[in-house]
Each structure stands twice: as C-alpha cells, then as structure tokens.
C-alpha cells in the first residue's frame, strides 16, 4: 500500500462525499469531476493506462459537461428552501450504511486470501485494439449500436414539443 494510493483514495472519496453533500448543485457537479479524476488516477496507478485515459475522456470530458448542461437547463443551481435532502433521508442513509458494512465485512473477511502484489502486466494499446476487433468484436458492435440508439433516444426525449402537436 503506497503513499500515492492513500492520496488518490482520499481525493476520490472526498470528491464523492462533496458531490452528494454540497448544497449548490453546480458545486456538486464540480466535486463529481474531482472524484472522476481521482478514479482515473487510480486506474493509472493500477497499470490500466487505456482505461484511465478513457475515464478522463468520457467522464471528465463528456459526462461532467453533460451534467453541468442539465443543471443549467433545469435551473437546478437554485437551492430549494426546504433543504436538499428528501423527507426519507434517514432510511436512505441507513440502507447505504448497511450496504457499506456488508461490503466492507466481506472484503476484510477475504483479505488474507486475496492475491498479493504481482508484477505489473505489460499491456499495450495495440493489444487492446487487437482484442477489441478479434475476441470482443461482437460486444464492440453491440456497444456501437447502443450508443447510436442512446444518442437518438436522448435527443428525441429532450426535444422540444411544439404546442398542440400531441
């Protein structure tokens, strides 16, 4: 367990906590970006360079911008008078704490059996590209269709309906 790992873990968890706790929605989106960046650096720390840079491109480059756009389009940056947490926040908190307790217990129980540190795998982007068009070509095509469908669907769902066209 290196110092870098602890630093990145603290950064990621702090970003996640700020993203769900802050009152201003725009600040939440910015904190979410910090959490995404921390995760990308954790992937790089795990020798998964391709996944790390894909995380930066897709999440920081696209999803965070999309979230900010949605917040501004829905005037969500105004803090509501009656608080930012729902009426049933205590039940949600209890459920989340229970899930974390179970997951943490399971990890700590199996920790002695988990594999020790191994030599870092030498994986190049070329190998990933070859695997994508060789062994994983069917999932790749399905993802291509899914992204097209999601793009068209998102535009149709969010498209402005003219009055009386229904």
């Amino acid at each position: 367990m290196s110092f870098v790992f602890y630093l990145l873990a603290v950064l990621t968890v702090a970003g996640g906590l700020a993203a769900v706790l802050l009152k201003n929605t725009v600040h939440c989106a910015l904190a979410l970006t910090v959490a995404f960046a921390g995760l990308a650096f954790l992937y790089l720390n795990l020798d998964a360079q391709f996944a790390g840079f894909a995380q930066i491109l897709v999440y920081i480059g696209a999803v965070a911008i999309l979230v900010v756009f949605a917040i501004l389009l829905t005037k969500g940056s105004e803090t509501p008078k009656d608080g930012v947490f729902s009426k049933t926040w205590l039940a949600g908190l209890v459920v989340a704490a229970g899930v974390f307790a179970v997951l943490g217990w399971a990890v700590l129980q199996t920790a002695p059996m988990l594999p020790k540190a191994t030599a870092s795998p030498a994986v190049t982007v070329g190998q990933i590209g070859n695997a994508l068009v060789d062994r994983y070509v069917l999932p790749l095509e399905i993802v291509a269709v899914l992204l097209t469908v999601a793009l068209i669907g998102a535009v149709i769902v969010a498209m402005h309906e003219k009055e009386g066209s229904r």
Binding site: T12, V13, G16, L17, A19, V20, T25, A35, L39, V67, A70, I71, T74, G76, P80, G83, V84, F85, S86, T88, W89, A91, G92, L93, V95, A96, A97, V99, F100, L103, G104, V107
Partner: peptide
C-alpha cells in the same frame, strides 16, 4: 465499497433528480 455506499446514499437521500 466506500464510493459505492456514498453514491447509494446520494441516490437515496437527495431531492434533485440530477
């Protein structure tokens, strides 16, 4: 696990859909 629990708490307790 901690990040998952934080996300779950956020999804269950916040009022804003975003």
């Amino acid at each position: 696990a901690l990040l998952f629990a934080i996300g779950l708490a956020g999804a269950l307790t916040r009022r804003n859909a975003i």
